[in-house]
């Protein structure tokens, strides 16, 4: 990995901003870094001496630990804060917090925030690289990357394949990052969910829309099942858990209408028995644990491409 291209931007804010070439570069890099997993000593010195800070304003187990593992396997030094957005109203501004972290000698800040555009705000104000680990309903670029990376691993390419994203599209940054990335790589994307959870104008991002899961499930090569938040029910966006499961839940009976080699994905954490039945979640179609594993490789690739080979390294 001595002579590699790097991402042109200082930050990774969203797949919206990346070219197909950028995406392929991340995938190639992830592929070669994945090899580290199989070494007896799971660590390479690629980011030795670099510092990476996780700044999480929303609870996260998977993404945060995945970034942390990725950084450590590349020999970077890491730090982290998890805090609640609500306490910010009386406290320090986001820019101040980020600047305070930066002056501790941090090269990259990985941020998760409940509000769209928060990573952009600190990226504009810092010299350090900013990596978006999920901002509001906007983007979750590393999740999008690891989803597509996993799809490619299973079916070689996503070009010409149909990806069905099922669930709460309106409030999903995972759906948006998937759509941006997949469309750049020539895939067909169908989003499916209750009309109240389909955002206005999603077609302009290149996605097709359906509210009838049984009509479209047979077309899918991949089904990306989104987590449904029960708080949306409280806001009147769907009537009940039972009705959601009946109309949009993926279970064994519904899977009979799907292609035999369909691949089931889920960004986690799964609500078993709500959007995904246990039978399907643990069944032969699922690649959910591959996604988690690939997540570390993708985050290693992103960190390496943003931080490696810079500063004369």
């Amino acid at each position: 990995m001595s002579k590699v291209k790097s991402l042109t931007s200082k930050d990774l804010l969203g797949l919206k901003d990346l070219s197909a070439e950028d995406l392929r570069l991340v995938f190639q890099t992830a592929e070669s870094l994945k090899e580290v997993f199989h070494r007896p000593i799971k660590r390479v010195p690629a980011l030795n001496g670099k510092t990476i800070f996780n700044l999480f304003y929303e609870p996260s187990t998977r993404t945060k630990s995945s970034f942390e593992m990725a950084a450590k396997m590349l020999s970077a030094t890491t730090g982290s804060i998890t805090t609640k957005t609500s306490s910010m109203t009386k406290g320090e501004t986001l820019i101040d917090t980020a600047k305070n972290i930066e002056v501790m000698g941090i090269d990259a800040i990985v941020i998760r925030h409940s509000m769209a555009g928060a990573p952009q705000l600190i990226a504009k104000n810092l010299k350090a690289s900013v990596i978006n680990a999920g901002d509001g309903f906007n983007e979750h670029p590393t999740q999008g990357l690891l989803d597509i990376f996993t799809m490619q691993e299973k079916k070689k390419t996503v070009k010409g394949k149909t990806i069905l994203i099922v669930g709460d599209i309106a409030h999903s940054r995972v759906a948006r990052s998937n759509i941006w990335g997949l469309k750049k790589l020539g895939a067909r994307v169908i989003v499916c969910g209750p009309p109240t959870l389909i955002p206005v104008g999603i077609e302009e991002m290149g996605a097709e829309v359906s509210c009838h899961l049984d009509k479209v499930i047979g077309e899918a090569d991949f089904i990306n099942v989104l987590r449904i938040q029960m708080e949306r029910q409280g806001k009147g966006l769907f009537p009940s858990r039972e009705e959601y499961t009946k109309l949009y839940g993926i279970d064994a009976a519904r899977m009979k209408k799907a292609k035999k080699d369909v691949v089931i994905m889920h960004p986690g954490p799964i609500n078993r028995g709500l959007e995904l039945s246990t039978e399907v979640a643990d069944g032969p179609y699922n690649v959910i644990l591959d996604q988690v594993k690939n997540g570390v490789a993708i985050r290693m690739a992103v960190l390496f491409l943003l931080l490696g080979g810079k500063n004369g390294n």
Binding site: K16, A116, G117, D135, E139, R173, R176, P199, V200, G201
Partner: peptide, 14 residues
């Protein structure tokens, strides 16, 4: 509210 609010992940006002 519109395609742009969806693309930016911001909450729309119709």
């Amino acid at each position: 509210e519109g395609a742009l609010s969806t693309q930016l992940g911001l909450r729309g006002i119709p």
